[in-house]
Amino acid sequence: MNMKFVVVVLLMLLLGMFLGMQMVKKNDATALSINVAPTGGDFVLQSKYGEFDLKDYRGKLVLIYFGYTFCPDICPTNLSHLTQALNELNETELSRIQPIFLSVDPERDSLDHLDNYVKYFHKSLIGVTGDELTIATVAKKFGAAYQKVTGESEGGYLIDHSSFTYLVDQKGQLKESFPHASDPLLMVKTIRNYLNN
């Protein structure tokens, strides 16, 4: 009788431990997953031209892409799509837009290098970055996820990341997220809708 009780208690303990471990695993996964309804919000980061304060861009549409220059495939693809969209716009429209490339790799992306990189894609792009904590906070606000991955190659680490291009309206509100490789003409249409509002 007593023995049976001990066995039951032990089994329950084991079950508890098992469930507990499962929950820990789940928590790890959610830490990486993307915020469902991101709200966006103001931030201050650094660029080659000094401080970049999103508050200074009220009245302009701001397009934000999170990436890093050591990213040869996804980032150039999305920056090229964005560039194609920007090339469709006239100078007046362009003057009311600020596209930015936000590097989640401040360790390797110096402000000079970042500027050099983004200017290759479009003259109006600004490259911004900051300290790791600030970047993490901004990413969370926008629902952008990223994670450092140390590969087998000697080339250094990679950073897996969300590939949305975010649109912040003239009031500083996050309004749209264009998914990876969005049709540039569709982006132009959406951008014009916000410019004409």
Partner: peptide
């Protein structure tokens, strides 16, 4: 190049999270 590696980019359709996998 110092090194050439075979990679595959996988983009999660739902979250738009892109990973480069060796």
């Amino acid at each position: 190049f110092k090194e050439v590696v075979l990679h595959q980019t996988v983009v999660d359709r739902e979250t738009d999270f892109a990973r480069m996998i060796e």
